[in-house]
Design a binder for these strands. Structure first.
Lengths: 168, 168
DNA sequence: TCGAAGTTGTTGACGTGTCATCATAACTCA
DNA sequence: TGAGTTATGATGACACGTCAACAACTTCGA
């Protein structure tokens, strides 16, 4: 993926975008990919789970009564129902979560952590935030944080996506 | 994927990362995803190709003699050989590129654009850069561009990944 | 209360990315 | 020159994401 243009040539002739702006764009895309890849690798290595697993399990862990209906879980982490359903199928197969019958709604079910899932999550939580800090947050100057926060929320706004920080 | 924690609660108790920094991280990840998704959607709609297709074809288009060995192509766009091989298999099936025998190295082959591939690429180039500008570059203030450029190249440096801009 | 409409969730098909493995060809150097 | 090493590239197995279709259940209005 990545809108990787793979060269540093003269896009300007076709696009009105100069070299510096292309470099900015390419690096901006690239840094995300590399960060996600590295964080995923560490999560996998240290806790044996993917980022998807982590998000799902954290949402369950934080839920009242440690359980959620798939739809509520999907809302919590911003996933489509189909994606979540496939993910849950795989996680059940790997013993990280279980589905339980739902008494009040015959269509639905509850999703709950297994003992193994809970153990993997706790291990992951210990390290993941620390990695995000050391690979990203700790490398930014205060004014850079401000600039990135402003810029990203403005772009998200333009895209019609919700921002944590609110539009600039 | 996305390191989506799915909630805005008190991560600080587990991570030493405050609310504002979490919001920054979440938005930073999010904006990439949304940008990639939107650009992909437009590329697909306007030219019938994916971002992967686009990157591959642009590299071929820019190459001397309009052809590359798979390994050189992989280097150009930063892809692993296996990923590229699968991608090329699919693109051949869709008629966007062809493989040709390589005389000088019995193991390898050349990858070349087909007429259809070239046509799709030209159509895509007309619009893609404009979209990147309108969805991203045009929304940034000069000082924000500087801050993002500095920060991303520093993070890439930390990750051991090459940066277009050079480390800060 | 009954039927249409909406909700919940699963499934299959397909494109995509990674890893491990393999076959083949090229290189290296004793 | 020939055996071991390295490079090129394809492949199969599997994880993941999206879309469209579907089944099952609930809700709501006449």
């Amino acid at each position: 993926m990545s809108t990787n243009f793979g060269y540093a040539g003269n896009m300007s002739e076709v696009s009105e975008i100069d070299e510096a702006e292309w470099a900015l764009w390419v690096d901006f895309v690239r840094v995300q990919q590399e960060l996600a890849r590295e964080l995923d690798r560490r999560l996998q290595r240290d806790a044996g789970i993917s980022q998807g697993d982590y998000g799902v399990m954290l949402a369950l862990f934080e839920a009242p009564d440690r359980r959620l209906r798939p739809s509520a879980l999907g809302d919590a982490i911003g996933w489509e129902k189909s994606r979540l359903s496939h993910q849950l199928t795989r996680m059940v197969a790997r013993g990280l979560v279980e589905r339980e019958e739902c008494d009040t709604d015959g269509r639905g079910s509850w999703v709950v952590l297994t003992r193994d899932g809970r153990r993997a999550l706790l291990r992951a939580m210990r390290d993941h935030a620390r990695d995000i800090r050391s690979l990203f947050l700790d490398l930014l100057e205060p004014d850079e944080k401000r600039a990135i926060a402003d810029a990203t929320s403005r772009v998200l706004d333009r895209l019609g996506a919700p921002s944590r920080l609110g539009a600039a």
